[in-house]
Write a protein that binds this DNA or RNA. Structure first.
Length: 174
DNA sequence: GCCAACGTTGGC
DNA sequence: GCCAACGTTGGC
């Protein structure tokens, strides 16, 4: 079976609820990406997003909105338990535990962008004009990217290699 | 199945 | 704070 090509995504997050710094502070710089409550995004998690895929971490509703970091998908999508938590803001009483409606996935921070890329900078690049995030009214929280878009965003963001910078590297190795 | 009303997202 | 765009709901 041929290996599946690595794919690339943009994940939106409102830093008022969970931002890049929060991800860096998580154990293993990894968190379960929950709260997706949109069928199109859910279908991407279920059908397209795979372990090892690249993720642009995007701050929405911030000033300015911007791509601020890189992450990678860890493991496969799995049931989002918050849909069944009584009183949770993401509870979905209509979801059947025998056939859960909503999924989440683990993501691990890879590196901060040396130059965070504001939305305006993305819009200024003709080669990025097809990215969903620059489209007016686009609300999808998990968006596919082409390999070319991924590479260009990394170049514009000053990423030379997808590695944690020395000050971000986890301790306790070597 | 249509579509108006509504709630939410998210840039500005 | 405003409001355009969008997705969902629910009456019919």
């Amino acid at each position: 079976m041929p290996a599946r090509a690595r794919r690339h995504w943009l994940f939106k997050s409102d830093p008022g609820s969970f931002g890049w710094e929060d991800l860096l502070a998580c154990p293993g710089r990894t968190t379960f990406w929950d709260g997706v409550r949109n069928y199109q995004a859910r279908n991407l998690l279920r059908d397209e997003v795979r372990a090892g895929d690249g993720v642009l971490f995007y701050h929405s509703s911030s000033d300015p909105p911007a791509v601020v970091g890189l992450a990678e998908v860890v493991g496969e999508a799995r049931t989002d338990p918050t849909q069944f938590e009584r009183g949770h803001e993401h509870e979905d009483p209509g979801s059947d535990p025998a056939a859960p409606r909503w999924l989440g996935v683990d993501v691990r921070a890879t590196c901060s962008l040396p130059r965070p890329l504001p939305l305006a900078a993305l819009k200024a690049e003709p080669a990025l004009s097809r990215m969903l995030v620059v489209q007016r009214g686009q609300r999808l929280s998990i968006q596919p990217l082409t390999p070319e878009e991924w590479a260009l965003v990394l170049r514009l963001g000053g990423v030379e290699a997808e590695m944690p910078s020395p000050e971000e590297r986890p301790r306790g190795r070597r």
